[in-house]
Design a protein around this nucleic acid. Structure first.
Lengths: 343, 343
DNA sequence: CTGAAAGCGCTTACAG
DNA sequence: CTGAAAGCGCTTACAG
């Protein structure tokens, strides 16, 4: 392998000192004013050699190196999770491009039980200036520890816990609004199929939905597909006398919709369905559910912007971003919520 | 921000020198043998403080960077291109994880006319040990220049040009094999709808298909949907008297299939269809085309492995990987290729 | 067995 | 205007 090009080498080629090269690269306008001729000579050599300052050395010497880490608790790219991560990464990528930062994906973090550990013996988090944390569920202790270490990070999604910067989605309000529509349509009994409530995003949805429904005395039975079968969910719908089935996860919603069809139960004429999320690619939206639509691309971009501000300070003209921010979700009418009818 | 915990600090707490701490952390068994008692005392302090060695400093002191760059010519994550990049990134990610390297996505490269330039003024390519290049079409000059600079890189996909390391897919053989099936089914006239032939992958498919068909005197008319409308393609099929429509891109194939259905032309009873690719997610495979299936996840992983070997040398026990390698594609029978019938 | 010291490639006061 | 030098937190010969 060719020996690494260093500032020292650039300096020799340009006939200046290593300090001058560094100054040309990072020179604040006010500090040392290098004559245009010298400056140009150095820049020419740099271009010829495609030299780039060693990020590790820069960092050690106390510089930000425009490297933002991305830590995903699960594999980021497999298709099973791509619905979750892809839109977030889309937003992050476009914001990163605009801000001129590169993205460091921490793929080397060991995966234990299908999840990555942030803080492990060989954690390389500090190679990046700061880090974006993505995942449905995060370990609160680990987050707290990271926060106390002073390492700058922003989580994508609301998190419980003190002093953590995040940008999340206002699932609670949107779920409550959907509950209102259910109430207005005259439904009195509902079944709610949700994911693990270990995730803040799932708790927020459950809270918003159930609080609102309960306040109007709508009865809600809940279940997790992790624990019970599709069959059992349908049985629950029948035994509870529910006229509306609310489902958190859009993929599970499609599974349930197919099962209902197979059983000859028509949606929404015999049973209404409301979904608290949607598939990430419009063309994959098989059924036009009455649902909430989360701005996940915007979420990724907003998280990136907040981290960038945390690292580089507030832009002069701008106001500072809030350290914790909830983005509103849209409601999609869809065609699966009908007036309640006696069953 | 809390002051960073350093080896110096650990050393003070454990009552040893900084060197000893370092030795405890990285000590090769054979070099310095530290007594178990000292060792344990140091480890205890490290555990209490959750100390992690600064990777930047480690790197500077001569430890491997373990950073592999990913350069995509277009945005990597938007859903329009996700079918293309996602499976590749899946393979890259899992290989990276296994090899213990992190991934540096060059999102800061300026996008000009929807494509990124590799070599620009502030190229940060050298942040990474080496780089994987992804994209349907690449600028041959740019590639050559990069190659001459001595920077280690591997392209995902076969490339024309000297001395370039790549892992590609054997589209040519697979397309020829599909052509053989078309011939065996008795077809004498075909229409081929392809993408821009600027890409090696498209040229390989066209070559394999057309050479084989021509060798059996099967007539082939070609068209690009970029240039002509769906309507015009259907007209071409009719005017050419084709009994089989071959399509390179699976998404375009679906569009054409829908147009045929709308026109009342049944596939395959009235017109056979063969596709030289497939959607990346099985569940998105709307129609069971007779097609070729490219191992794109394996492709990503193989490219990563080749780059890693380029950077770190050949593993002792192993044989070296070839610098240029074509992976075989599978043929899927599907249900859209039938015996030719007079029209 | 253990520590002082050089050096990795940078940035940034500080002197000329 | 320009460069010598200290220092960032490590690893690793090299001396005790």
């Amino acid at each position: 392998m060719a020996p690494r090009v260093t500032q020292q080498r650039i300096a020799e080629l340009a006939g200046v000192s290593q300090t001058t090269v560094s100054l040309v690269l990072n020179g604040k306008e006010d500090s040392a004013r290098i004559p245009e001729a010298t400056r140009q000579r150095v820049l020419d050599v740099i271009n010829e050699t495609t030299y780039v300052a060693d990020p590790a050395a820069r960092r050690l010497a106390g510089q930000a190196n425009n490297l933002v880490g991305i830590f995903t608790y699960e594999h980021a790219f497999p298709s099973e999770t791509s619905d979750f991560y892809t839109p977030l990464l889309t937003g992050i990528e476009s914001a990163a491009e605009q801000l001129g930062v590169d993205l460091l994906m921490f793929t080397s973090a060991p995966v234990v039980d299908g999840r990555r550990k942030i803080l492990h013996e060989r954690s390389r988090l500090r190679l990046a200036d700061g880090c974006l944390l993505l995942g449905r569920e995060m370990d609160a202790d680990e987050l707290q520890q990271l926060s106390e270490s002073g390492y700058p990070f922003v989580t994508v999604g609301r998190r419980d816990g003190e002093n953590i910067r995040w940008v999340g989605l206002d699932y609670k309000s949107a779920s409550a609004d959907l509950a209102s529509r259910i109430i207005e349509a005259g439904h009195r009994r509902a079944v709610y199929v949700h994911l693990s409530l270990n995730a803040e995003s799932s708790r927020d949805r459950a809270d918003g939905l159930i609080e609102r429904l309960s306040s109007s005395d709508v009865a809600v039975e809940t279940a997790q597909l992790k624990d019970v079968s599709v069959e059992q969910v349908l049985d629950l719908v029948v035994s509870a006398g529910a006229t509306v089935l609310v489902v958190e996860d859009p993929t599970e919603a499609e599974t349930l919709h197919a099962a209902l069809r197979a059983k000859g139960i028509a949606v929404p004429s015999q049973l209404s369905m409301v979904v608290l999320g949607e598939r990430s690619r419009p063309q994959d939206q098989a059924i036009d559910f009455t649902r909430l639509s989360a701005p996940r691309i915007a979420l990724g971009a907003a998280a990136m912007a907040l981290l960038h501000e945390t690292l580089n300070g507030v832009d002069e003209a701008e106001e500072g971003l809030p350290e914790q921010q909830l983005l509103p979700c849209a409601l999609i009418d869809g065609s699966t919520l009908a007036q309640a009818t006696a069953r």
